[in-house]
């Protein structure tokens, strides 16, 4: 981890009609860190991620900088191209496809993804086999390789979370936004997921920005935690300091 930020958010907001889901949030995430984002239900965490990834449009004003580039005007796929991956709180997998095929959607610049190359099987089949192998290695790392032939509709919620993580990791992103990666996952597996995340960070230097309700697991693995409450960031500190702070309990108890 360096002190250099990979993500710089400055004064962004989002309202849905009268609801101010995110209000003037500023924060920075350090390159190579595992950073947590916690807060009670409805405090605006997912919305903040949507603004960063571009899935939702922020209100005018404020700015988002990723890896030294201003990204707030870019459409979501461009942000992803720059190396910002993400997963969703409710897993979003492609139906009617196997887990492996889902992961096979992820690689960029596939030759066979161009409409006039696609009919020429010989031109892309080699690459397809390579990518399938890579996808399988990826799944093995996340210990979901037994699922590759299953349709996404046949797997459990926790497995969906992992499949989603596998999709997002395929392209070696610089930063990953994970929205509750362990929700619906058995406690032992939750530990494993965080272990995989930590390994991934060490091996590839990926930055992780994670929303998580399982504080006990999260706190063991993160460097820094942001606490969100009613659309605002109310605290930023190391996990050891955060647990001691009584504002945390107050936020969660809705005071």
């Amino acid at each position: 981890m360096t002190d250099e930020p990979i993500l710089l958010v400055n004064g962004i907001s989002k309202s849905f009609g009268g609801v101010k889901a995110v209000e003037g949030v500023s924060l920075s995430v350090k390159k190579g860190s595992i950073t947590g984002l916690i807060g009670p239900n409805g405090s605006g965490k997912s919305t903040l991620f949507n603004l960063i990834s571009g899935a939702e449009k922020k209100n005018p004003g404020g700015s988002i900088e990723f890896d030294g580039k201003q990204i707030d005007a870019l459409p979501p796929h461009k942000r992803s191209e720059l190396g910002m991956g993400r997963t969703f709180q409710t897993p979003r997998l492609f139906p009617g496809m196997t887990v492996l095929e889902n992961t096979m959607v992820a690689p960029r610049g596939q030759k066979g993804e161009r409409p006039f190359v696609a009919p020429l099987r010989r031109r892309w089949e080699g690459q397809e086999v390579e990518l399938a192998k890579k996808a399988k290695e990826q799944m093995t790392r996340l210990e979901i390789d037994k699922l590759y032939g299953k349709l996404t509709s046949e797997i459990s919620g926790g497995q969906m979370k992992l499949a989603q993580l596998s999709n997002a990791l395929m392209e070696d992103p610089k930063m990953l936004l994970l929205d509750e990666p362990t929700a619906g996952v058995a406690p032992r597996l939750a530990q494993d997921i965080f272990q995989s995340i930590t390994n991934e960070r060490h091996e590839r230097g990926t930055t992780f920005f994670i929303i998580e309700h399982r504080l006990e697991v999260l706190f063991k693995h993160v460097d820094t935690v942001f606490v969100m409450h009613q659309g605002r960031i109310i605290m930023e500190d190391k996990p050891e300091a955060i647990v001691k702070d009584k504002r945390l309990a107050e936020a969660y108890l809705g005071i």
């Binding site: 990834s53 571009g54 899935a55 459409p75 979501p76 796929h77 461009k78 992803s80 191209e81 991956g85 993400r86 969703f88 979003r92 997998l93 492609f94 139906p95 009617g96 496809m97 095929e101 096979m104 959607v105 992820a106 960029r108 596939q110 030759k111 066979g112 993804e113 161009r114 409409p115 190359v117 696609a118 009919p119 099987r121 892309w124 397809e128 999709n167 997002a168 392209e171």
Partner: peptide, 21 residues
């Protein structure tokens, strides 16, 4: 082909497809 897979992904979940660039 991979393009067929891409077409289905784009049809079924635009947001997820965009998140995969």
């Amino acid at each position: 082909s991979p393009y067929g897979r891409l077409l289905k992904s784009v049809r079924d979940d635009k947001v997820a497809a965009e998140a995969l660039a």
